[in-house]
């Protein structure tokens, strides 16, 4: 038999045993799994960053393209927000101040990733624009969290989502994230 496909076979069979180390997306040094992120305000993408690159963008007042995502968690209960007013079909959403649009934006998770919902509400002053979010659940839990936590959750839910409301695995993932957030926010 002709052995034309030996290269392809080798590539598919020989998988790297250790996962490739993550790298800073700004300067390419190897970084720990527990690294910080910066938001690219133009593309609204989250970039993994090493500590030195992260620290370049921590000034809230600076007019820069990138902004470091802070590591702040807090319980948040606001009479401003009624769940029904959000008009979100699922029981989970996160809100943040999009500085490019100059308004609050609500995103909710689903099988295709995060879906944006039109939102007419005043800016929430406690939230740092673009980098902090209010993570909400229908049953009333509300937390101020770093926005990367929301995107991580959306990414995980996207792979787990089944049916209209997400299914069991998705709900377990949501519970897990809320447990972690609650601990970080110092709420028992």
């Amino acid at each position: 038999m002709n052995d034309s496909l030996s290269t392809l076979r080798r590539v598919v069979r020989n998988r790297p045993t250790a996962p490739r180390p993550e790298r800073c997306e700004m300067c390419a040094v190897t970084i720990d799994p527990a690294h910080g992120h910066v938001v690219d305000l133009q593309s609204r993408q989250l970039l993994c960053a090493c500590r030195p690159c992260y620290l370049l963008f921590t000034d809230d007042a600076a007019h820069l393209r990138y902004r470091a995502v802070p590591d702040r968690y807090a319980a948040f209960r606001s009479p401003l927000i009624s769940w029904d007013a959000l008009e979100i079909p699922v029981g989970l959403a996160f809100l943040f101040h999009n500085s490019a649009l100059g308004r609050m934006v609500a995103l909710y998770p689903g099988p295709a990733g995060a879906t944006e919902s039109e939102l007419d509400m005043p800016l929430i002053g406690e939230l740092r624009p673009d980098v902090e979010a209010l993570l909400l659940r229908r049953d009333g839990d509300g937390y101020l969290v770093p926005i990367d936590v929301c995107y991580e959750l959306v990414g995980r839910l996207r792979t787990l989502w089944r049916g209209f409301d997400g299914g069991q695995e998705a709900h377990a993932a949501i519970d897990e994230v809320f447990d972690r957030v609650r601990r970080r926010a110092g709420v028992s």
Binding site: S4, L5, T7, L8, V11, V12, R15, P16, R20
Partner: peptide, 24 residues
């Protein structure tokens, strides 16, 4: 297949991973 043999050695780590992922 022969083209893969020629291109792959120059593809680098990311290229090989891309080929593997597409093949998967």
């Amino acid at each position: 297949a022969a083209r893969i043999d020629v291109l792959l050695p120059a593809a680098g780590e990311n290229g090989v991973e891309l080929v593997r992922t597409v093949a998967d």
